[in-house]
Design a protein around this nucleic acid. Structure first.
Lengths: 208, 208, 208, 208
DNA sequence: AATGAATGAGGGTTCATTCAT
DNA sequence: GATGAATGAACCCTCATTCAT
């Protein structure tokens, strides 16, 4: 049926156009922040008319949220299936922590500016997005807690309130990422940073 | 000289009025966030005309910054002179950490909404305020590092990159405060939370 | 190419709309003067929204300048090519002076209010427009000087500082126009006025 | 009576203060033009509070008009009693014209910026001041016409419409003053300018 | 009389959103 | 579907004027 073919081709083209506008939105949001971004800026960046923006997103807020969602999907995809391989002992736990952080760091490196912008802008846009950021963080907390519960059950982690400790670990991680991006840790390699942080997380500051 | 008296009285009244407007600004920023706040909202909240706002602050940005500055001064005042009493051993270190965190938590409790608002909004206002937030955090990092350096020198803390670990600790602390405020840790007392976090910071997750 | 056709049609429509706003601006400036004119007055006069004004002019000043420029172009067009026909003797000089003034007076009559407004308001708007008015006058001075230089060279005009005398003549002419418009010479026909002024310019007040 | 003395002293002081504010107004109007002048600018320039301005003038318009009036009184004082000495012949006419213009030029030189400002700003302030400027000019026209009428009656001036010619002469004079002030006649001495203009007024451009 | 803080109507300008083409 | 000109509500900021001290 040719009309179906035609419909399909149109659908694909529309989807591609939507991606163009979404990409343009991300670039402009990164460059100017949410509130300094005008719809006309996005349209110009995407090389389309302003009306076309409204064909794909009801308003600026929705475009921002779509940028946010695409980013979080990207990050979670990176960790999908990770909880399948639970560590057998403290050494494996530490090793997989380091390698997970390195993978994460790599993934973020490619989207550093985007990540920084989203963490900075999203909570200030409105309550809905503030909540989304918190949920995003909760996702990592859940993952960390799963590992921690496993480790305490298996006896190679100290018994503790695993929810609170998982929150502390994830909060620390996000904060370190932020400080790293904003040049708060110059003259330090990423490997060194991760090793120090993981050591801290495993052993604390006390000298045993 | 009567004119001096007059000048002094006017100065006092002007300063009081400025505080009124500043207080009103803080309340409205907390309620509505930076971008949803209109100058007319602040003026109405303060019970003055719009022009009066501009008599005391050149624009909304300046009022926000003044709110921010007053808050940070308040917090740092709480910790002034703390580094005078460096701990003699791990036990004292832990005890003073817990008591410092409790004091801080108390101080914040009274300004919880303000603190939450400032952390959420300031980075998104502009680069200048983003940097101010970072500097604010750096202030605590410096304090934490001072203690940590002392402890490693005295031998009751594990040798480590004290700058990075101090950054991790402060990042964790701020993040926990945020999660606590936003109801991410329900059914938990503040004492329990602080104890868990301090234990984690001192011993890590490993079972020794 | 249909998109080119579309572009062309849009361009034409935009230009027409710009003219509408420019015409409306001129009418309102004439009616209310520069400083009493609000953008909203111009928009209402043009029958468009306020935003439409800003689509065509960056601000009130620019609209005023455009009105000014269009007026000066109109006037100079009236005199283009005039210096091609230099007079052969005093009689021809006088005749062409009278006819030039009549032509000018006619052109001005159709734009009397506009001319009066521009001469009154432009110098007070800012330095740039004050200078533009002066340059406009200089244009006529140059023309007058060209004729005067020719006449002195040919021997049918008294030797003199032709620049100064040209300035005096043009100043006199503009001033008379102003006085005429503002009803300073009632009960006098335009022909009579021009003849008296030209006689004065050719013979002075002295009885020979 | 001491209270009368005191009243008198107060009256004098008030009058002096009014002059201070008037002087300050003139300086600021010259520097910034009418519309760019704020009441606060005038008060600051006079070294008084804003309220004090309103004690002496009902509004900005009134202060401007007072500046204008003081200027015109100054100029007319310069010419008071001049019409008493009517010239006996063309030579005396010419001589007294030159000397009158020199005296006028001298008087204006001391108030050049003020004169320039008033001519530029007053007509654009409102109809009332526009009319005042015209009346001011009419004063000189009347003076010129008196002389011209006398000269034609006595037979040493060409018969003409003396009102129109007087208007032309005064318009020319004011215009030349303006051009002189605004640097339109560089490399020319005042004497030369006046001589050229008077020659033109007496003999026209024709070579006799 | 002098002051200058307070006022708020006024007006310039922006920009998200619509809609005719 | 795409466009971008048009819109006008919204909002910031100014400044002449008032008035309590």
């Amino acid at each position: 049926m040719p009309s179906t073919l035609r419909q399909e081709r149109d659908r694909v083209r529309t989807e591609r156009r939507r991606q163009d506008v979404l990409d343009a939105s991300a670039r402009v949001f990164v460059r100017q922040g949410y509130h300094r971004t005008l719809i006309s800026d996005i349209a110009a960046e995407a090389g389309v008319g302003q009306g076309t923006f409204y064909r794909h997103f009801p308003d600026k807020r929705a475009a921002f949220e779509a940028v946010f969602d695409r980013f979080t999907e990207l990050l979670f995809a990176e960790f999908a299936g990770m909880s399948a391989n639970l560590p057998k002992d403290a050494r494996e736990y530490r090793d997989s922590s380091v390698s997970a952080l390195l993978r994460m760091a790599e993934a973020l490196e490619r989207n550093q500016d985007l990540a920084k912008m989203l963490m900075r802008e999203a909570p200030a846009v409105d309550r809905g997005l503030e909540e989304k950021v918190a949920s995003f963080q909760d996702g990592f907390v859940f993952l960390a807690k799963t590992f921690l519960d496993h480790a305490t059950t298996e006896g190679f982690a100290r018994p503790c309130d695993t929810t609170l400790v998982a929150q502390a670990i994830v909060g620390m991680g996000i904060s370190m990422a932020h400080q790293w991006w904003t040049g708060r840790a110059p003259d330090v390699t990423l490997e060194h940073l991760i090793n120090e942080v993981v050591d801290f997380a495993f052993f604390g500051i006390t000298d045993h």
